[in-house]
Design a protein around this nucleic acid. Structure first.
Lengths: 229, 229
DNA sequence: CTATAACGGAGTGAATCGCTCCGCAACCGC
DNA sequence: GCGGTTGCGGAGCGATTCACTCCGTTATAG
């Protein structure tokens, strides 16, 4: 092996970084529209990048998804911290929900398909704790309806994050209607938030959902069929 | 295979009808979980029916979907009429939403993929008129918040109808958690309905969504641009 | 018994997938 | 200039999956 005397200035570093960002953006967009069946070819084309370049940066499709997932978890964390920084417990929570709904859709398609490394699971846990703090504060301040649990809020976010309308319009290339579709979803989010606010609402039906609905979604350990080499 | 001596008068006709129903149920289930990529093999297996039997009844996969779509539109219509039959405008609307959310998810995957025959378009229009009447009555009675339009309500239904959680659990075969997931969604629907009720809510953000968001979704005639590659 | 009709599913060609491989261009130290 | 290195795009590969066909089997009717 030739030995690397010193780390030289990478020649086309800038283009590489730009490509990496484009790849991540493209992956997010294609994942949102095509779901779990998103193909690497579609991602590369969307990013304006060759397939070969994609595979130099990421050894596999799954690695790209995991990296993307990691970045999205950072967004979750940042949003939760911003919510806690808001002096008003309600507007903190409401802002968190509206923010997160905007980018939550990319994740769910790969929920059951990948095995999470320890670091990502950790980050996931930290994000959960942060949003739990936001919800707890809202509960303590009496601005969030008492019968709505943390799980309810998280499920609501996930439910609103994945918009069939936006996805279909994106798939049809109707970029002209995209903005209208996003404000339409913002209105629906506002409606849901009004229903989440403490008021004289009738009690919610059924049992409060348990945490297992969330926890077991990413755990693929035993549910994943063993892969023989 | 085992000889069916015990079953005496089991004419093939009955089995055929039973198969047809099983096929439709299976198609609905698989469409809900696999989306537009649902395969005929999966549908047949889910229905416990051979592929050959499927293709004797329906000349093509699309024909099966269209038949299913027709039946679902009947459900929409029936739900809207039941809502109008309810003497209380609010509980009529609320019941409509909760009912429709249960089965709305099956449709959206095939929204942009098929060309609708005239009869189905007609039925679609009639269903739209019926739900418009439900919403109008609620508006007139002052029980529905005035700034929420018919389109808002329809989009809300579509948004809640497609549940990533339920779909993923179904895909993983976690039938044990399915019931919990459904009640969880019912709670979220209840929250949204509380936010839809007339009260001192702050005004909804943005412009009210126009009808084009809905109308142009099924129209595949010329709106579909020839796919450039 | 034979004839008929509905059955299930292996098989088929086409399409698509993740991924590899390689020729080419941009940039480096000299 | 020049050789060497690095990143680039995409044709092509084997594997997989798709919608659909075809046919041998099986239960009922006459």
């Amino acid at each position: 092996m030739t030995r690397m005397t010193a780390r030289r200035r990478a020649p086309r570093r800038t283009e590489a970084e730009r490509n990496d960002q484009a790849l991540l953006d493209g992956a997010r967009a294609v994942l949102a529209t095509d779901g779990a069946h998103a193909s690497v070819a579609a991602i590369a084309k969307r990013a304006g990048v060759g397939i070969g370049s994609l595979y130099r940066r990421y050894p596999t499709k799954e690695a790209l998804f995991l990296h993307l997932l990691d970045l999205v978890l950072d967004q979750y964390l940042a949003a939760a911290e911003a919510a806690l920084a808001d002096p008003d417990p309600w507007s903190g929570l409401a802002g968190y929900v509206t923010t997160v709904v905007e980018f939550a859709g990319s994740l769910s398609p790969i929920a059951g398909t990948v095995q999470l490394p320890e670091a990502v699971q950790d980050k996931n846990r930290r994000a959960d704790e942060a949003v739990a703090a936001v919800v707890d504060r809202a509960h303590a301040a009496g601005v969030l309806r008492p019968d709505a649990t943390l799980i309810d809020v998280e499920l609501l976010i996930e439910q609103l994050g994945k918009s069939p309308l936006i996805e279909q319009l994106a798939k049809q290339g109707r970029t002209d209607l995209q903005a209208a579709a996003r404000t339409a979803r913002a209105r629906i989010t506002a409606i849901a938030l009004d229903g989440l606010r403490a008021a004289g609402h009738p009690p919610l039906p059924g049992e409060a959902p348990g945490p297992e609905l969330f926890e077991e979604r990413w755990a693929t350990d035993e549910s994943r069929p063993p892969e023989p080499s």
